[in-house]
Design a protein around this nucleic acid. Sequence first.
DNA 1: TTAGCATATTAGCATATAGTAATATGATGT
DNA 2: ACATCATATTACTATATGCTAATATGCTAA
Lengths: 99, 99
Amino acid sequence: MDNDVAERVADVLKAVAHPARLKIIELLVPGEMSVGGIVEAIGEKQSITSQQLNMMKDKGVLGRRRDGAKVYYHIENKNVIKLLDCISDHCEQNSKDVK
Amino acid sequence: MDNDVAERVADVLKAVAHPARLKIIELLVPGEMSVGGIVEAIGEKQSITSQQLNMMKDKGVLGRRRDGAKVYYHIENKNVIKLLDCISDHCEQNSKDVK
DNA sequence: TTAGCATATTAGCATATAGTAATATGATGT
DNA sequence: ACATCATATTACTATATGCTAATATGCTAA
């Protein structure tokens, strides 16, 4: 793995490596969702959720679409879905021996 | 995904989300390696490499074994290997359209 | 026990990230 | 044009992270 690749990969991983952001991604796997819907679903403040959505959009993880007053976010980088699958497997395997 | 799980997963991802640490993990996929070997292979300073190895050990990603004066690190959480596979696929797919 | 190699730890600084509260922008309906 | 809802942005604080340089520890061989 050369330097450039390592940095890009690390960037995507950093974009995802946060509890609330993981939940957001999980929410969006089935399809797009409005900011309001996301805020309600994960129970975080509007402001911080918006910041995180924007951050993930900047890093290419999410995309968005405006429809009237609402803005809908979706997963743009489909690889994070695969990543989430790996992680879910991990959790199932390890759900017993959590420290 | 409940809160506890999200936090543990985010923790593992954060442990991995760094260029040098990704390279270290890649190095260790075939098997264990001494600190000196790792330092030489990734071309980082001894001190920082040691810090990162310890950090990943603390988070359960790596394990270590002392043999005489040398210390050998290996991948303890095998799921990061799967994770790395996902990421590699990602890179192959996207190697053309990097911004 | 001393020298020297291998690794770990510490203190300190610079920068990044997470979060809060307040405010701004943008769209809709009246 | 105005009120209101939906979302974004900003300024700010607190904490975490990444790194450096220096020093400490652990092991081995003489």
